[in-house]
């Protein structure tokens, strides 16, 4: 018999499932409760849908200075509420979009604009990515050119060719082959690194033959 305090006995499974379902339902509904609470806090929409629409389009591209990573349209900060209110007022007073933007830039600077104008101070912002890209491109081209020089093919001498074809054709005498390949490797060591490629080929072939 399982001890009483051990929860996960087979008899208890259904009970646990029941508890979990209750808990999940509770959490779900309490979550909805919060959502409704938050909804209540939302500022009432302006009476004129046309004004509201224009205001929203304008504020999409404006930065909330308090929250900084939200647009004024999205933000629920007090600051954004005020700015939205002021924009509504100005729209009703028949101000143009440019006038409203100017009004805000005069007070808060270019920082409120998500789409900053091109100026001496914003040149790096506008062209920085392009400059970085060009630098990257320059490095890439230079690297590729250097690489081409480095991997210039080394012609095999006639003697090398002979050895290779001998190795490839001679499949039965593995012992002799091993000897000859060892010789080849020794030779390469004395010849230095230039024949890297041929040595790779020969060792690969060697492995294939052994099997």
């Amino acid at each position: 018999m399982m001890p009483q305090y051990f929860l996960f006995t087979i008899d208890n499974r259904e009970k646990i499932a029941g508890v979990l379902v209750c808990l999940a339902t509770f959490l779900l509904f309490s979550g909805l409760g919060w959502a409704q609470e938050a909804y209540k806090e939302a500022v009432p929409v302006a009476e004129d849908p046309e004004v509201e629409k224009r205001m929203l389009i304008l504020t999409e591209d404006l930065r909330c200075l308090v929250c900084q990573n939200e647009s004024i349209a999205d933000s629920r900060a007090e600051f954004s509420n005020d700015i939205r209110r002021i924009i509504r007022e100005q729209i009703k007073a028949n101000k143009t979009d440019a006038e409203i933007i100017d009004f805000l830039v005069d007070r808060y600077g270019d920082f409120v604009l998500y789409n900053p104008p091109m100026k001496a101070t914003t040149v790096l912002l506008w062209f920085g990515p392009l400059i970085m890209f060009m630098i990257g491109l320059w490095f890439l081209v230079r690297y590729l050119k250097m690489r081409r020089v480095q991997i210039e093919e080394v012609r095999l001498t006639e003697a090398d060719e002979k050895k290779i074809s001998a190795m490839l054709n001679d499949k039965t005498e593995s012992l002799q082959l091993q000897n000859s390949s060892e010789n080849l490797m020794k030779q390469e060591k004395t010849m230095g690194g230039k024949h890297q490629r041929t040595s790779e080929i020969s060792t690969n072939e060697n492995k294939g033959n052994k099997i």
Binding site: L65, D106, R107, Y108, G109, F111
Partner: peptide, 9 residues
């Protein structure tokens, strides 16, 4: 400091 927005005024 990102909170220190230079004032145009």
């Amino acid at each position: 400091n990102p909170r220190q927005v230079p004032s145009p005024l």
